[in-house]
C-alpha cells in the first residue's frame, strides 16, 4: 500500500536548511497497524504528514497504492486524502460551533458521494464510535475523549483504506485514550490500515509493527506480537 524509498525532507528555517528526514526506506502492506515512534524532533510527524499527503518530500520516492506522489497534482492529492485516507489529530481539529453531525459530514462535502446518502453515512460513522446520542450536540460541548471519537468518526465517514493518527491519545486521560485506541484497533481488525505516530510506548504497542525514528532516520523497524493485553497500563 505504501512504498517509501530514501525519503528526504528538508526545511529552510531562517535560511538554515534543516533535514527532518534523511533518507527513510520502508513499506506498509494493506491491513497493517504500524506505530511510528521517536523522541520529539525525530521527524516522525514530518514522516506522517508526507505519508498522508499533507506535505511533499524534497527527495526520494513515495508510492501510495502504486502511484508516485511526484506524478500527482495538488488536486489529485486532495482527492486521495478525501477518498482513501482518514485523519485523527492530537488536537482533534473539530469545528467547535458545529454539531457532531456537521463535523463528521465535512469530508463528504468534498467527495462525490451524493447528498442523499450522506445522512446514513454520518449516522453510521457516529454510531461506530458510540456517540449517536450526541449527534446534534455542538462539538465544543463534548469532553476530550468524545471529541477524539468524533474525529475518528470523521476519519471513517468516507470509508478510507488507511487511517493516519497523529498522537491521538496525546490530549486525553488514560481511560479516554484507551477507548480511542480500542476503536483504532477494531478498525484495524476490520481490515483497515492504521499508521499511528506516538511517543508513548504503551500506545505504540497496540500496533503489530513499530518503526522507531531518530534524527530523521529509521533506528529500528520491528514487527511485534500485538501487546494489546497491556491496555490497562496505557499512559
Amino acid at each position: 500500500m505504501i512504498e517509501v524509498s530514501d525519503l528526504k525532507k528538508e526545511y529552510l528555517e531562517e535560511e538554515t536548511p534543516t533535514r527532518a528526514l534523511r533518507g527513510v526506506t520502508f513499506s506498509i502492506e494493506k491491513g497493517e497497524f504500524v506505530s511510528v515512534m521517536g523522541p520529539s524532533g525525530s521527524g516522525k510527524s514530518t514522516l506522517l504528514h508526507i505519508l498522508s499527503f499533507l506535505d511533499r518530500p524534497t527527495g526520494g520516492s513515495y508510492k501510495f497504492q502504486g502511484k508516485s506522489i511526484d506524478e500527482m497534482t495538488d488536486k489529485e492529492l486532495a482527492q486521495v486524502r478525501n477518498k482513501d485516507m482518514g485523519f485523527v489529530f492530537q488536537s482533534f481539529n473539530l469545528l467547535s460551533r458545529l454539531t457532531v453531525y456537521d463535523n463528521v459530514e465535512i469530508p463528504l462535502l468534498y467527495s462525490d458521494i451524493p447528498p442523499s446518502k450522506r445522512a446514513t453515512l454520518v449516522e453510521e460513522a457516529v454510531r461506530s464510535v458510540g456517540l449517536e446520542e450526541k449527534l446534534h450536540t455542538e462539538a465544543g460541548k463534548l469532553s476530550g475523549g468524545q471529541k477524539q471519537r468524533v474525529a475518528i468518526a470523521r476519519a471513517l465517514v468516507t470509508d478510507p483504506n488507511i487511517i493516519f493518527a497523529d498522537e491521538p491519545t496525546g490530549n486525553l486521560d488514560s481511560e479516554s485514550g484507551l477507548q480511542v485506541m480500542e476503536i483504532l484497533e477494531s478498525l484495524n481488525d476490520k481490515g483497515r490500515t492504521v499508521v499511528l505516530v506516538t511517543h508513548e510506548t504503551q500506545t505504540a504497542e497496540f500496533a503489530n509493527r513499530i518503526i522507531r525514528i531518530k534524527d530523521g532516520m529509521i533506528e529500528s523497524d520491528k514487527e511485534i506480537i500485538a501487546n494489546r493485553h497491556h491496555r490497562g497500563n496505557l499512559k
Binding site: Q79, R81, L95, Y110, T158
Partner: peptide, 16 residues
C-alpha cells in the same frame, strides 16, 4: 487558518 487546514486535510481543494 486551522479550519482551512482541516478542510484541506479531508479533501478540500484550493478552489473549494
Amino acid at each position: 487558518t486551522r479550519e482551512i487546514g482541516l478542510r484541506k486535510a479531508v479533501g478540500a481543494t484550493n478552489n473549494d
